[in-house]
Amino acid sequence: MNRRRLEEKIMLGVISLLAIISAIPIFAIIINIYSEGLKYVSLSFLIDFPPPPISGGAGGIGPALVGSLILIGLATVIGGAIGFFTGLYLSEYSHTKLAQYTQMFLQIMVEFPTIIIGLFAYSVLVAPLKRFNAFAGAFALSIVIIPYIALNVREAYKSIPYTLKEAAFSLGLSYPKVYLRVLLSTAKRGVLTALLIGMAKAGGETAPLLLTILGTTFTYFEGLDQPINAIPLLIYNFALSPYERWHQVAWGASAVLLTIILTIFIISRLVVKEVKI
């Protein structure tokens, strides 16, 4: 008996230790990013062009921030719309073969390496136009987030009790009114969470942008058919550059990006937490 008790103590201790070790990096990352990066962040950092690599003033990430906001917005609208209606179909017509196959495809799509999605966007929107462009980036990001949004919207609608659906139909409402007004407001937390997850994904994704938006411009937005920059892509390019000054900008940009992601994450948690009825 004593030997078993001892074994229990040791094993549970080891498990706790390993669990704590696996959580250390997230705290280290947040602390490192903010302690290294925040000192470069100021209002002008959010607005200005990046500095020249060697000499020159502080500079900033203005074009990349603008680019990121445009890309996140477009991707959330395009991917959100396709993902939402796809998810609604998956939930409400889940008995159909079409829904079952689509759901399987989406589960595989979630696991697609995102760089492959970048290659696809390159094939259909960059190569034919012979120019890197913002729309190709937004298109790629939309594809990245469609499965996340669709699968989460499906969950949101699935969680509505059947009896509420019956109640809505018994009032003589049409299909669009039942699903897009009455039941949508019942499922709004779940749907909102789905969109927020999509936004966070779109904001942090880098690989597809590498192949679509080019990202080296020193200009703000010039049109959807023109190259554009984005914060994650700037971080990648500057971090791997040989210039110390650009490394600093990369750290500062990371602090900004982390703040964006953390904000979306916290909002999505609050949305879920708000008293469930």
């Binding site: 009790p161 009896t163 109640a167 139909f169 018994s170 003589g172 009825i277």
Partner: peptide, 21 residues
């Protein structure tokens, strides 16, 4: 069909008001 359903008011086994309204 929506006209049909308006002619019949319906009350269900489990009270099901829309909880968020």
């Amino acid at each position: 069909i929506t006209w049909v359903r308006r002619q019949f008011g319906m009350v269900f086994q489990i009270p099901n008001p829309f909880p968020h309204l």
